[in-house]
Design a protein around this nucleic acid. Structure first.
Length: 222
DNA sequence: TGAATGATCACG
DNA sequence: GTGATCATTCAT
């Protein structure tokens, strides 16, 4: 299933995405986050990546969600107000970055699974111990390692100047040598890395992008 | 395909 | 407290 979406702003006119953007259905937020730019500033370093892959997670009705069995100490941020970060540690190795969605009291989040490195690539390479740009941030654990994001960044306001998502600026991207399509081709597929809830098409990704994590074989085109 | 590695949560 | 289970990554 392939959908096309206008690259121009449809909800937030310009700049940093605000709480109203996130306080909606997780699937809609996950879809619209594709193509937006993740910005994380710390210690004078500015890291940017264009979102290439997301997954939506719901509440009690979603067996794959951390919030499936109600509120716990770990997932309580998912029940809070939208537009805050939810970072968790998993498999003893990796951190995963989420954005809280839905209205306050309703659990929901969008997992950021992959971005296209846009700015701060040298620092990302240093942290990842890897020179291949395509491997820097093409996975939820990879991108948090490249950006230096850990559970210390959980529960933060994602409308802040130093940690947010924003509309992509075509002129900035062009100056940095990144591709700037007028239209985004967005693919939809089941979520990956989960045991249940695999029938739901809650994964969204930039079609034809070399910066996505994986491409489910049964959904591969051609 | 499996190993690495540690937090979390449902048990009782 | 205990043990199964991970919204993963990398090397084999």
């Amino acid at each position: 299933m392939i959908l096309a979406a206008a690259n121009k702003a449809s909800f937030c006119p310009v700049g940093i995405l605000n709480q109203n953007f996130y306080a909606r259905d997780s699937r809609l937020v996950a879809f619209e986050l594709i193509g937006k730019v993740l910005v994380f500033k710390r210690d004078g370093d500015v890291l940017c990546g264009r979102v290439a892959e997301t997954e939506a997670y719901l509440g009690s009705q979603d067996p794959a969600s951390h919030a499936h069995r109600g509120m716990t100490p770990r997932n309580c941020v998912m029940f809070g107000p939208a537009g805050f970060s939810y970072v968790y540690f998993t498999y003893g190795f990796h951190h995963c970055l989420n954005v809280v969605t839905e209205s306050e009291g309703v659990a929901g989040a969008v997992l950021i699974r992959a971005v296209e490195p846009v700015r701060g690539i040298e620092l990302m390479m240093k942290r990842r111990g890897c020179r291949d740009v395509r491997s820097l941030t093409s996975g939820p654990g990879k991108l948090t390692q490249a950006f230096g994001i850990t559970v210390a960044q959980s529960g933060l306001d994602l409308t802040a100047d130093d940690f947010h998502f924003e509309e992509e600026n075509h002129e900035d991207l062009k100056r940095l040598g990144s591709d700037c399509p007028r239209w985004l081709r967005i693919g939809v597929s089941p979520r990956v890395g989960i045991r249940e809830g695999t029938k739901s098409l809650f994964r969204f990704f930039l079609q034809d992008s070399p910066f996505v994590s994986v491409f489910p074989k049964h959904f591969r085109e051609k």
